[in-house]
Simulated scan of single mutants.
Amino acid sequence: MDVQRRGQILLDHITFGQGAHFLLEVLLLQFASVFLTFQFSSSLLIEISKPDLFIYAYTGVSIVFFGVLVLFTAKMRKRTFSPSLYSRTRLAVSVLGYLIASGLVILFGYILLIFVLMGETRIGQLDYVFSGMLTTLFAALLAVGYHARIADDRPNRDTMVETITGWDDSHSWINEDDRSNAKQEAYGEFVDRMDDLSSILYSAKTVEGKLLREDFEGWRDDFESHSELSKETIIKGQREKKNERLEQEHQKLASIRHRLRIIAGKQ
């Protein structure tokens, strides 16, 4: 995997396939708002009579903003077709990415401004806590903005799970009696569910999601070129693996089903 693709996969932890333009736009606007606000402020430092009270208040608000950040980030990852994004570790990476991006805005737009104009000795604990609150606020706003974009052009979570589960369950057509009409009806259902799955996979925007779509469409083209008996062999697999091509297609199917089950929350 080349460096560019690795970088895109890493970026997907924040953009979830929506591209970096919105990320840069929001971060620049946040930087401008912070820098211009404090650039012309009469005092960069927070001077109040009861700093401890505000430290507790800012900390509490930061926790709320952090909760919003985690909530919307968790929702976004479950609107993608990237299996790796469904792990809690990757969720932590996404949240950390938002905090780092917003933290850089606060660092260069506020903290360094204080250091340059007033000196390090003047900044106090309350200023650091306030900076932390702004960081979590901006990170939460960024996550909410991305979530709004994803909600507009991606299938909802229920549709994704229903479509994936429907296709996965429809593989049972191979268990029907060969001499019955039920088998043809079940196979027709399998084809319909394949069409449904193909339709929602075209909304995939992440690197892993696009790869899953390509793998599925490639497997489907090969599958439909076979006879009915070979199709059953691809679904069931072979005990002795006499036909290497059919076995390879069976393994491709197993990989696709495994990734889709992770996305549907079945594994």
Rank of each mutant, 00 (worst) to 15 (best):
G67F: 14
D153K: 13
M118I: 03
R213W: 07
T37S: 15
A92R: 08
D178L: 14
G67T: 14
K242I: 14
T159P: 00
S62M: 09
P51Y: 13
D196Y: 10
F54M: 15
V161T: 10
R154M: 13
V207Y: 00
L104W: 03
F130Q: 03
S49L: 12
T159Q: 13
E189G: 04
L112M: 14
I235D: 07
E217Q: 10
G7W: 11
L29E: 08
F65Y: 12
Q251I: 10
S102L: 08
E232W: 05
I164R: 00
S255K: 15
L137N: 01
F22R: 11
G265E: 09
R6N: 14
D177S: 10
K266W: 08
G124I: 01
L246Q: 01
S49A: 15
M1N: 11
F81M: 08
I48L: 13
D168F: 06
L91K: 04
L85Y: 00
S203F: 10
L211P: 02
E217W: 03
G209K: 00
K210W: 03
G7M: 14
K252V: 08
R5M: 13
F22C: 06
S230F: 03
S94D: 02
R122F: 04
A74S: 15
L24C: 06
S180M: 09
S199V: 07
T165H: 04
K183V: 05
D169S: 13
L142P: 02
T37K: 09
S82A: 15
S199W: 08
V34S: 01
F108M: 11
I263V: 13
L53D: 12
Q18M: 15
L45D: 11
R193E: 12
L212I: 01
I14G: 00
S227K: 05
V70R: 05
K241S: 14
Y187P: 04
A140V: 08
L117A: 10
L99W: 09
Q267W: 08
M1L: 13
L85N: 02
T80G: 02
G188C: 09
H258E: 15
R149N: 12
G145E: 12
E208R: 06
W219V: 04
Y98W: 10
L197E: 03
F72T: 07
K242P: 01
T233Y: 03
V34G: 04
L229P: 00
D153M: 07
A101R: 03
L141I: 11
Y56F: 14
A139E: 01
T163A: 07
A140H: 03
A264H: 10
I256M: 11
H226E: 13
Y110W: 05
F72E: 03
P51S: 09
T73R: 03
D178M: 11
R193N: 10
E208K: 09
L126Y: 00
L85C: 01
R257D: 02
Y110N: 01
R157S: 13
V61C: 06
L117F: 09
R220P: 00
F115Y: 13
R88Q: 14
L96W: 00
S203W: 01
P155D: 07
A92N: 06
A74L: 11
E217K: 05
S227G: 11
I235T: 09
H226M: 13
V93Y: 06
G109F: 02
R5D: 08
L10G: 07
Q30A: 15
G237I: 05
I262H: 07
S33A: 15
E249S: 08
